[in-house]
Amino acid sequence: MRDLDETDLEILSLLAANARRPFSEIGERVGLSGPAVSDRVTRLEESGVIEGFTLDVDRTMLRAGVPVMIDLEFAAAEAASTDGVDPLDAARERARDADAVEHIFVTAEGDLRVYARVEGRNVREWVRRLFDGVPVADYAVTLVDEFEWTPSIEGVEFALTCAECSNTVDSEGETTRIDGEVYHFCCPSCLSRFQERYRRLEDGV
């Protein structure tokens, strides 16, 4: 896959500030014609860097639930779920499917950290239900007083991440499309592992 150049990053920055900005206006800012900007945006969409133009709703303004940070530690690898799925993968899938979860992080130690806004007062009961059946060794719930999320797409802070291991994907990485979705990988090994696990899930193994 090709590297993102400075013009790509500037276009992304302008779209992030205002997704309705006309391509002609962006072109004036980056030194390209409107059609040339359109072509670049199309390539960014096809490569999965841009996944549509959506509303960015700040849930903190809506006060939708109690903001919490949940840290989960998992049992030893041999204590995997009964269906053979790795505990971390199983917990991450549960978190992805939960409407209350806004951000998911995986630590270098293989633990899971989840930021969520949970309805109701019994947060621990919500956590218990969400991860029921997943061999969690221990977990901690922290009430969040203030939260600030300031992702950047300037310079080196913008990077694609591997769908398998979450490492940064560089120009030597791999890109593939599975069932209409574009996935990026840092190396062929990660691509192979992802495809194998995907096939097992499809086959119900």
Rank of each mutant, 00 (worst) to 15 (best):
T7M: 11
E196T: 14
P188I: 00
I50E: 06
Q195L: 15
L88P: 04
F185D: 05
T161N: 00
S38I: 00
G180D: 04
G180S: 07
T7D: 11
D5H: 08
E25A: 14
T161L: 01
G173Q: 00
D203W: 12
V49W: 07
R121C: 04
R197F: 07
C190R: 00
M1A: 08
A163E: 10
S152G: 14
P35K: 13
T175N: 03
L130W: 04
D86Y: 02
T7A: 13
E51D: 12
A98R: 11
A77Q: 12
A100N: 03
D86H: 12
D86E: 14
E157Y: 06
F105K: 08
L62V: 07
E78A: 08
F74M: 12
V85H: 01
D138L: 01
A64V: 05
R200I: 00
F105R: 13
E109Q: 15
T176H: 03
R177Y: 01
L160T: 02
R63Q: 13
R94M: 10
D39P: 01
E125V: 06
E157W: 03
F53W: 05
A137R: 15
F105I: 10
P67E: 07
M61R: 08
G31T: 08
E109C: 00
A140I: 14
V141H: 06
L72I: 04
S166G: 05
T42A: 04
I104Q: 09
V85M: 08
E51K: 14
E25H: 05
L88I: 11
R124N: 15
A108R: 14
R200D: 15
L55I: 03
D86C: 03
E10W: 05
A116Y: 01
A140P: 03
A19C: 02
V169A: 00
V123G: 02
F158V: 05
V205R: 14
R197I: 01
V136E: 02
E73M: 11
L112I: 01
F53N: 01
A19Y: 10
I104M: 09
E154A: 14
T142D: 13
D3E: 12
V136D: 03
D5I: 10
P188N: 01
L72R: 12
E73Y: 10
E174C: 04
R20P: 00
E125Y: 00
G52Q: 08
